[in-house]
Design a binder for these strands. Structure first.
Lengths: 208, 208
DNA sequence: GGATGTGAATCCATTCACAGCA
DNA sequence: TGCTGTGAATGGATTCACATCC
C-alpha cells in the first residue's frame, strides 16, 4: 500500500461498516467478503475494498475479512476503542432528545455533561447528569472531554463555539443552522435538519 | 444557458442561500452580489454564481442579484412557494423534538400529521395534532401529504417506508440508521446522527 | 477458484479565468 | 468599472478491471 490521503467520505462510511459488521448474521463463518458487506449496506463492493485498503492489508485474498479483526481495526482507526465522553450544549427540545438517544452506545460515545443557559434548567439532574451553566464550559479540558454536541439557537452558536474551542474541544457536532468558525485543528460536522427537509419538495413531482 | 444536470449539492445549498438572503442586513440596496452572499455563508463566490446559473440568468452583470427576485426564484425552484404539509412517523424522543422544532417554518414546511405505533400515545393531542396509529398512513394520499419524516427504530423502518410509498409519499427524511429501499421516483434524505458523531473521534489528536 | 488490493478510467463537483454585458 | 455567466481546468471520489495472492 502506498500513501494516500484518506477521503472524508471514507471516514464517514467506516461507522456504517461497523454497524454492518454487528448486524451480520453469525453463520459460523469467521470472515465476510467485501461483496457480502456491500450487499448489507447497499454500497458497491469495490468501494468497500478501496475504503479499507487505505489502512493497510486488512483482508485475505481468496477468503475475505476476518470479522473480529476488521471490527477491531475499524474501531482503532476511528479511535472508538476507548469510551469517549461528550458534552451536550443546549437542553432544549432537541438537546433533551439527544441525551436520551440510544444510538451512540454502539460507537462507545456517551454524553456525560450538559450545559444550559436557561437558569430554570440549571441544577436539574437528568439521567444522573447535573445540568450546568454555560460558563462552566471552560472546565472541559480538566475533565478530559474533547467532543461537544451543539443544540442551541443559532444566534449564540459562535459565542459558545469559541468557549468550547478555548476549553480544548476538538470535535463539534453542530445542529445549529449557522456556520462555525474554528481553528484548523478543530473538526465540525454539521447536521442542518431544516435544510435537509427543505430539499425534499424539489424532488417531488411538480405541483405535489 | 445550455442544459446541464443540476448537481444534488447545488440543491442542498439553495436553502442555505435562502437563509442567507433572509439574514442579509437591509442596507437600502435592493441587490446583493455573489461575493456578499458568499461571505455571509462562508462559501466561494463562483460557487454561488454557478449554482444560480443552472436556473437561467437571474442576476444583472455589474449589479448583482435583486434580493426579492432571487428569493422568489429560489423558493420557486425548491417548490417552497406554497406550504407543504409533512407527516411525522414516530413520536419518541426525537419525534417529539422535531414536532416542536421551529426551523422548518422558514421553508414553508409544517408537520401537521403524526403517526405512532405505541397504543398509549395514540389519540393524544399535541400542538393541535391528534396522534394516529401507523395503519392510518394509507390515508396520506387522500390528504395530499407527500413528505414524511421517519423517526422510528431501525427494525421497523423498511416496513413503514413501504407503507409511506404506497400512500404516495415522494420524499422521506430518514433519521433511522437503516438504508431504505424505495422506487426511483421517491427521494430519501438520510440524517444519521450516530454515524456523524462517531466520525468525530477520528479527527481528534491521537489519544484525546 | 475466489477474493483482495490498486492503478487507470470515469464521473461529479469545485474553482478558475475571462468574455460579455450594464 | 463591476459583476454575472460559463467554458476550461482542476480536484476529489467512485467505479472498473485486473494483477496478485491464499
Amino acid at each position: 500500500m502506498r500513501y494516500h490521503k484518506v477521503p472524508d467520505e471514507t471516514i464517514r462510511r467506516l461507522p456504517v461498516y461497523l454497524r454492518g459488521l454487528c448486524s451480520f448474521p453469525n453463520n459460523g463463518s469467521h470472515s465476510i467478503s467485501s461483496q457480502q458487506l456491500a450487499d448489507i449496506l447497499h454500497v458497491k463492493s469495490p468501494q468497500v475494498r478501496k475504503d479499507l485498503s487505505y489502512f493497510g492489508d486488512i483482508g485475505t485474498p481468496g477468503v475475505g475479512y476476518d470479522i473480529q479483526k476488521l471490527t477491531k481495526h475499524i474501531r482503532a482507526i476511528l479511535q472508538l476503542n476507548n469510551v469517549h465522553c461528550a458534552a451536550l450544549v443546549g437542553y432544549g427540545n432537541l438537546g433533551a432528545a439527544l441525551l436520551k438517544y440510544t444510538g451512540f452506545g454502539t460507537f462507545c460515545i456517551e454524553i456525560n455533561t450538559v450545559f444550559e443557559k436557561d437558569p430554570r434548567k440549571i441544577g436539574r439532574v437528568v439521567r444522573n447528569i447535573k445540568i450546568e451553566e454555560v460558563s462552566k464550559i471552560s472546565s472541559l479540558s480538566k475533565r478530559g472531554i474533547s467532543i461537544a454536541i451543539l443544540a442551541i439557537p443559532a444566534a449564540e452558536s459562535q459565542d459558545v463555539t469559541d468557549k468550547l474551542v478555548n476549553a480544548g474541544v476538538g470535535g463539534i457536532l453542530n445542529f445549529t443552522s449557522s456556520y462555525l468558525s474554528v481553528p484548523a485543528n478543530v473538526k465540525v460536522i454539521n447536521i442542518d435538519i431544516g435544510v435537509s427537509l427543505a430539499c425534499l419538495p424539489y424532488y417531488l413531482p411538480v405541483g405535489a
